[in-house]
């Protein structure tokens, strides 16, 4: 492991026991033997459809779930898992997350300023002026003006809310940001703005990104490495440009060919997953 690797997964596996009388004793392997190494300042995409395990992997990276086996290494040491708030607070300064739904990922009763203030007071012992300064700095980083920072979420658009969510994630100066489909709920023009903002933020700091997404075009735009997942397994991995322009695995090829673009026509396939995949799994905290 080189000094430049900030995030590493080693044979990470997550198994959920299934609930319900009919399925007792069975288990769901959500993530199976996933490994990757992400250098500092890099950007990794985790691509897959529903049931691929990408969200579970993201949750393990950020510390919400503990792997059943295997380890996640951050900056040269393995990550410990604990529900204790103090432990989480310390880990908060390592890896943070931005969520998909702009409408429920912010406390509706708090403006951005109030939210950031609360977090800054939780983590640091700043004076009031220092807090104000830091909040203004964060607002500038994500492209939000004073008025927007002081407004309640209900007055903000989806794009603005995601900016607040990004500011919240950046507030404690983490080293890795995990985006769990964070741009999927946004309009095309807003997505483009946010992609630019995220590029800017990354260029000016040595932040590392992990992008969980189903949108291959977005992934191509902002990431350098990609992990393609299907039903918990990594089916292909490599440089984003390489994998997307010349996919090797049949599933990657299928994904690639399903993306609408100029001249694209939809295709019917021979096989089709008939019923829902079992979604029921153990409680996560």
């Amino acid at each position: 492991m080189t000094g430049g690797t900030i995030l590493e997964a080693r044979e990470v596996r997550k198994v959920f026991p299934l609930r319900g009388a009919a399925r007792r004793g069975q288990e769901l392997v959500a993530v199976d033997a996933v490994s990757f190494a992400l250098p500092r300042g890099g950007a990794l995409a985790i691509v897959g459809e529903s049931g691929s395990g990408k969200t579970t992997l993201a949750r393990m990276i950020v510390g919400l779930e503990a792997p059943t086996s295997g380890e996640i290494w951050f900056d040269g040491s393995p990550r410990q898992y604990s529900r204790r708030a103090a432990h989480r607070r310390q880990q908060a300064r390592e890896i943070q997350m931005v969520f998909q739904d702009p409408y429920s990922s912010l406390d509706p009763r708090q403006s951005a300023t109030q939210c950031l203030e609360e977090l800054l007071r939780l983590h640091f012992t700043f004076t009031a002026e220092q807090i104000e300064e830091r909040i203004a700095e964060l607002g500038g980083q994500v492209g939000l003006g004073q008025a927007e920072m002081n407004a309640k979420p209900e007055r903000l658009s989806g794009g603005q809310r995601q900016r607040v969510a990004i500011a919240r994630a950046l507030a404690v100066q983490p080293q890795v940001l995990v985006f769990d489909e964070a741009l999927s709920a946004l309009d095309v023009s807003v997505q483009a703005q946010l992609l630019n903002t995220l590029s800017d933020i990354k260029d000016r700091s040595d932040l590392t990104y992990v992008f969980v997404s189903h949108d291959l075009a977005v992934v191509r735009q902002i990431t350098e490495q990609v992990l393609v997942m299907q039903r918990g397994h990594v089916v292909e991995t490599g440089a984003t440009a390489q994998v997307l322009s010349a996919p090797q695995h049949p599933y990657t090829r299928l994904l690639r060919s399903s993306v609408p673009g100029p001249g694209w026509r939809p295709k019917r396939l021979d096989h089709e997953p008939s019923s829902r995949e079992p979604q029921d799994h153990g409680e996560a905290n």
Binding site: S189, L195, N196
Partner: peptide, 24 residues
């Protein structure tokens, strides 16, 4: 025209996407 340009494409990354300023 702006919508087409603002959409990232799977064929290549751009340094910056020509985003439409403001909001819809």
């Amino acid at each position: 025209r702006a919508l087409f340009a603002a959409r990232p494409t799977i064929d290549g990354a751009s340094h910056r996407l020509p985003a439409i300023p403001g909001r819809a």
